[in-house]
Amino acid sequence: MPFYLPIAEMSLNVFLLLIMGGGVGFLSGMFGVGGGFLMTPLLIFAGVPPAVAVATEANQITAASVSGALAHWRRGGVDIKMGMMLIVGGAIGSFIGAEVFAYLRTIGQVDLMIALAYVLFLGSIGSLMLIESINAWRKRNSGVVSRKKRNHNSWIHSLPFKMRFRKSRLYISALLPIGIGMSVGVLAAIMGVGGGFIMVPAMIYVLGMPTNVVVGTSLFQIIFVTSTVTFLHSVNTHTVDVVLAVLLLIGAVIGAQVGVRVGMKLKGEQLRILLALMVLGVCIRMAYGLLSEPDELFSITEVIH
């Protein structure tokens, strides 16, 4: 059943959208990730203009993060004060990202930037995750238990504007969460991702936050950053397709519930290897689009009025 998407200005099969939403929702539930880094490329592969895919996915991630953040909130897993600092940074970052996005769109390079950003981030994070999870799996199989000690660099403690974060039991410079939030904000604006895959490791290894508040706080920040991104893209480039976002959402909500249940039955390392392989797969597909000679060298962009 084809469905006309008013902003993407194309028809897509409604069942395809529900399946895509469900599939990505399933994976995000299983792996505990937002899924934006999978959904945005999928939308692009399905023919949605990359700019619309990015902006719309930001909108969809807002919804996905709300339900996730709610669950963590109930368990007391959100550090509001830390979240606020991340949001301040996120607002600045998403503003910068959205401006760059709008500018590149006028000179016809936004698709290139999106593809390059994906290849770069998915490639490096996918490889790191794969190596790390294979090592962990090997060690567990050979019976060696190793515990990495968190090493805190001294420069981190010499930064000014120190602030006390009671829930995270930290006394660190506010510049740190603002800086992390900012880079995530830029990524959200130009890639249509929540940025959890950058933020969660950064919160653990750079800030030294306890793991029980990391995911909840990151989801809390993602709600606000993706909302800001949605707003900025709506105003700057009119690329947010609410109809597409809602259709993806329906599938994603259902898929995520199934994914959580399946994920609990699988071992952590196996899950991470699977996820790493998937991330690398998307990366390779994106890279192929950049490196192989296209069938058609010419493309048309209607002038934005």
Binding site: N59, T62, A63, T230, F231, V240, V242, A245, V246
Partner: peptide, 8 residues
């Protein structure tokens, strides 16, 4: 769009 996402 934000309201719809938050509500859903």
């Amino acid at each position: 769009a934000i309201m719809i996402a938050l509500m859903s």
